[in-house]
């Protein structure tokens, strides 16, 4: 049996990524990032359970410049993974699989996650009065 002409899965170093490949790899990267980030969620909840001092420490960490940058990154990762996850679920249901639709929904997801991230942080600063 001939085995050398089988299709290969996209090889990241030589495959030209576009509006199909980048969303796919971003979905995976945001999924892994969110998995790591979920440790912070548990830490935050544990700090609340431990009392005011532990909570103040957590808030100081999250409120620092680096903390804010990391939280901003996680906000985008969450929105991207959430929106693109919905896109995946729609595909799994058998819809939106025409190539024009796939390319259009990729752009919708990218724009929506940037807009939602910026909107979220605007609201946080307005509500928080910082």
């Amino acid at each position: 049996m001939q085995t050398d002409k089988r299709p290969l899965s996209p090889h990241l170093q030589i495959y030209k990524l576009g509006w199909t490949g980048i969303p796919s790899i971003l979905h995976r990267m945001t999924g892994v990032a969110l998995t790591l980030g979920s440790v912070l969620l548990v830490y935050w909840l544990a700090a609340i359970a431990s009392g005011p001092e532990a909570y103040a420490t957590a808030q100081a960490i999250f409120g620092s410049i680096i903390g804010q940058i990391i939280l901003f990154g996680f906000t985008f990762a969450l929105y991207y993974h959430l929106c693109n996850g919905i896109r995946h679920l729609i595909w799994d249901a058998g819809y939106g699989l025409k190539i024009e639709t796939v390319l259009r929904s990729a752009r919708v997801v990218a724009i929506a996650s940037v807009v939602l991230t910026v909107l979220t942080w605007l609201l946080v600063f307005i509500v928080g009065g910082a």
């Binding site: 909570y55 103040a56 969450l78 959430l82 996850g85 609201l123 946080v124 509500v127 928080g128």
Partner: peptide
């Protein structure tokens, strides 16, 4: 689990926003 997470995270992020800057 993905389907369940959509409403859960929209709800949770909304809750976090509305408690921004709140005390302990």
């Amino acid at each position: 689990t993905a389907v369940a997470l959509v409403p859960l995270y929209i709800w949770f992020v909304w809750g976090l926003i509305s408690h921004a800057g709140a005390d302990y």
